[in-house]
Simulated assay, not measured.
Amino acid sequence: MPKYASLMTLADRDVQNAQELASIWGELETELDQHEATLEDSYAILGEYDFLVIFEADDREAGFKSALAMRRHGLEGQTMPIIDVENISQLVDEI
Rank of each mutant, 00 (worst) to 15 (best):
Q16I: 14
F55C: 02
M1S: 09
V15K: 01
L32P: 04
M8P: 03
L10Q: 01
D59Y: 06
T9D: 12
I24Q: 06
A18W: 09
R13W: 06
Q19V: 10
E20C: 01
R72K: 12
P2H: 03
G63P: 03
E29Q: 15
S23V: 07
L21E: 07
P2Y: 06
Y4A: 09
D84K: 14
M1D: 10
L68D: 06
E20W: 00
V85I: 14
S42Y: 15
G26Q: 14
G74Q: 02
F51Q: 07
V92F: 11
A62Y: 09
S89R: 11
I88K: 09
E31C: 07
E94S: 15
R13H: 08
L21V: 01
L7E: 02
Q90G: 06
V92C: 03
F55K: 00
V92A: 09
G74W: 02
D14M: 09
I82G: 09
I45D: 02
I82R: 14
M80H: 10
S23G: 14
Q78V: 15
K3R: 12
S23M: 12
L28H: 04
G47D: 11
H73W: 02
G63F: 03
V92T: 11
T38K: 15
I95A: 12
L52Q: 00
I45H: 04
Q78C: 09
H35F: 14
S66M: 01
T38H: 10
E56D: 06
F51W: 12
V85N: 09
M80F: 15
I88H: 07
D41Y: 06
F55W: 05
I24Y: 05
Q34Y: 09
E20Y: 03
D84G: 13
Y43V: 00
A44Q: 08
D59P: 11
R13C: 05
A67N: 06
A37K: 02
D93G: 08
A5H: 05
A57H: 07
G26V: 13
E27V: 12
D33M: 11
L46E: 02
S6C: 12
E56H: 10
T30R: 13
L52D: 03
R72L: 11
E27H: 14
E86L: 12
R71G: 06
Q34P: 01
T79S: 10
Q16C: 12
F64P: 00
S66N: 07
G47I: 14
D93Y: 06
E76H: 10
L21M: 10
D12F: 07
K65C: 01
T79W: 00
D59W: 13
S6F: 09
N17C: 11
W25M: 08
I95C: 08
D33C: 05
T30F: 01
Q16P: 01
E31I: 14
N87V: 07
L21I: 04
T9P: 00
E76N: 13
Y4H: 07
D93W: 04
I24A: 08
A22W: 03
P81I: 11
L21P: 00
D59M: 11
S6Q: 05
A5K: 05
A37E: 04
A69T: 14
A62L: 07
D50P: 00
A69P: 01
T38G: 07
